[in-house]
Design a protein around this nucleic acid. Structure first.
Lengths: 131, 131
DNA sequence: CTTGACCTTCCAGCAGCTGGAGCCTTTATG
DNA sequence: CATAAAGGCTCCAGCTGCTGGAAGGTCAAG
């Protein structure tokens, strides 16, 4: 399978797939013409990567998760630990973002948004005093 | 005021302040010894930047917001527009993250987390089939 | 035989810092 | 007054995870 088809199948851009090869996440053999020749296992790995990335796992997490996937003697506890830590980071980001949203939404609400210069948003940024 | 004191006052690391000078957000004059000599206005700008950044505005947004702040003839509508667009992006990210969280939390819940290899998390990543 | 769609490599750049090396200046202490 | 620590300076490199583009080789269709 050539990279374009793999891209379709795995739902990843060719550039990304090449990058994943670069950093050693997949190792497709080459055809005589130099083209990457993806085997089913490679395509499968890439789909795995795509899903893990779409859940927000870092590349390093993905590497570890794939190694665990390949390891028949893994303990599910190891996988769960990674997932739980990642979940925690997501919760933290959510908290941060939602506090940003609350502040911003309030400021936007307070701003007249007309042609006059008075602006509670700028006032807050300048002084740190939320109206 | 030297960079260290400004860092304390504005709540930004010295490295960040130097970086902000690099990209033209502040332009402190220099003392004879080459040290940056921050004026009150510079410190004020940096605090402004710190607050804008902590609300998640991009550097380019910050640049625009500061320009608007300096412009006595601004229309608050312009500020509000920037804030509203930023708010939208935050909402999008929130939605994305919270869907990640839901999926992950569910998977973590389903995983025994013991010494056995069976793992619904890996199964999902491998097949895209949430239990 | 040519055209166009693929494929290849390599280099650069995005955001927003952060770390470190190597050097100079100021300040505090003995 | 000498010295050492603390702070300042510049410049270069690297982080994450790609993405774009240039310059070129390959392959299938007409």
């Amino acid at each position: 399978m050539n990279i374009g088809d793999v891209a379709q199948t795995a739902g990843l851009p060719p550039k990304t797939i090449r990058y994943y090869e670069d950093i050693g996440l997949v190792k497709p053999p080459r055809d005589a013409n130099g083209y990457r020749a993806f085997r089913d296992a490679d395509v499968h790995k890439l789909a795995f990567l795509g899903r893990a990335r779409s859940l927000g796992f870092t590349i390093e997490d993905c590497r570890t998760l794939m190694a665990l996937y390949d390891d028949q003697n893994r303990a599910s506890a190891d996988v769960k630990m990674i997932a739980r830590q990642h979940l925690e980071k997501i919760e933290e980001k959510l908290a941060e973002l939602s506090s940003m949203r609350d502040t911003l939404a309030h400021l936007v609400d307070c701003c007249a948004g007309d042609e006059r210069p008075d602006c509670p948003i700028l006032n807050d940024l300048a002084t740190g005093t939320i109206p």
